[in-house]
Nucleic acid binder design. Sequence first.
DNA 1: ATAGTTTTGTTAATAAAATAACATTGTTTT
DNA 2: AAAACAATGTTATTTTATTAACAAAACTAT
Lengths: 207, 207
Amino acid sequence: MLPEKTVERLSMYRRVLQTYQDNKSEFIYSHELASLLHLTPVQVRRDIMLIGYTGTQRKGYSVRELIEKISQILDGGAQINAVIVGMGHLGKAITNYFNSKRSKIEIVAAFENDATKINRIISGIKSYHTDSLETILEDTHATIAILSLSPPEAQDITDRLVFAGIKGILNFTSIPLNVPEDVFLENYDMVTSIEKVAYFVKEKIKK
Amino acid sequence: MLPEKTVERLSMYRRVLQTYQDNKSEFIYSHELASLLHLTPVQVRRDIMLIGYTGTQRKGYSVRELIEKISQILDGGAQINAVIVGMGHLGKAITNYFNSKRSKIEIVAAFENDATKINRIISGIKSYHTDSLETILEDTHATIAILSLSPPEAQDITDRLVFAGIKGILNFTSIPLNVPEDVFLENYDMVTSIEKVAYFVKEKIKK
DNA sequence: ATAGTTTTGTTAATAAAATAACATTGTTTT
DNA sequence: AAAACAATGTTATTTTATTAACAAAACTAT
Ligand SMILES: NC(=O)c1ccc[n+]([C@@H]2O[C@H](COP(=O)([O-])OP(=O)(O)OC[C@H]3O[C@@H](n4cnc5c(N)ncnc54)[C@H](O)[C@@H]3O)[C@@H](O)[C@H]2O)c1
Ligand SMILES: NC(=O)c1ccc[n+]([C@@H]2O[C@H](COP(=O)([O-])OP(=O)(O)OC[C@H]3O[C@@H](n4cnc5c(N)ncnc54)[C@H](O)[C@@H]3O)[C@@H](O)[C@H]2O)c1
């Protein structure tokens, strides 16, 4: 199992490699990849070592092969289905954005509470009432859920998602969720991010 | 200067303390605060130690005083102005969300490219053409920028923001930005997050 | 061919973050 | 009043992440 930070960087390597592939040469040096992402060459080489890919000395890494190897590590070739709960402002932004990219991860269903948003297609995704959460999850075999609903019911929904077999959650609500150990939980809190920026701006100016 | 992770947690402590304050008792133990956020009591105590606040033994921390101390550390009492560039799906979601909370950080202006979105009030914020970026920044004394524009021009806009005095950037575009050392840059990449969740789900199932 | 250069792959060292250990102190119980 | 307890504050240890160091390989120039 790779370190979390390495996994994050692999995702970024792949993205920049994909745009690099179109324009440029067949090979890429660790220092070139590093410079595209503002990292150090050592870190790039170390990450690549950890996934067991090896380049050719003096030529660098084959862009095509490296993309392939990273893809094999990150998504293992299989299609991964995700659902999203809460199609408000943020939910729509996310869905809209994801729909526009091809990826092994696909958002296959949305869940809502608000009658005006149910049984409609929003941002290209069919939106269901949360009552049918269990049924839809069974049908779609989704393993990942994105949470962008208003906080009050976040924990209840999470319990139901987990019970219905969800194994990974990306949580955008500000609620610290309780999940069993075998479920991977990633939280992102925008307020925390901006407060962090504000703090370090303040500190840097002080200095 | 506090460790990044401590700053992130301070932001979270404050939020849960604020909701705790309304309902419950005047004091809180480290283990209670820890449990609300699924952290360890030691980590809570250590963070609180680092900001130089001290509770009372056997009683815990005064909720009011702790909120006050954290606020003093995070925003130093002063109002902080931010701007947002790109009022698409994500930009609107963010602005809408921020407007609805009271905070020392305020989004005071938005910038856009798209003629249909200029010189209007969107999600409660006046939206300007990017041409007037420099003027508006001077007027508002904003020090923070949130980037939610479509990628191609992200670096150009960043250069102008930095030149106009912006000291902190929260970047939601997938472009790795170049900024001088004295500017604090925080990147958040949603695709990376979801790919990370997918990877660890896959690994956990394997085991 | 040989020496020099450049780049990878890997091990070693350092730095940052989290956790554990424990001394101190105020409170409760006996 | 003394002993036991439960909490904080702080130092020490461990773990995780990053950075540095360098040997091995492959190409280039002499
Ligand atoms: N918009 C942002 O930039 C932002 C930033 C940080 C955090 N968040 C968090 O993300 C969440 C969504 O934010 P938003 O701005 O999209 O809010 P929003 O109010 O626009 O959307 C919330 C949506 O969730 C739906 N919902 C509520 N309860 C539900 C339930 N039990 N099941 C299914 N759907 C339900 C609502 O009908 C609504 O459509 C909130 O928890 C918010 O705290 C948002
Ligand atoms: N929506 C998401 O969930 C999501 C997730 C990850 C990353 N992103 C990134 O966030 C950014 C915005 O995403 P979105 O979904 O809101 O896209 P969007 O197309 O809805 O919005 C982009 C907005 O930026 C404006 N814009 C373009 N160039 C500009 C410029 N030079 N100056 C000012 N404004 C400009 C456009 O007019 C548009 O309104 C993109 O870079 C995207 O890659 C979005």
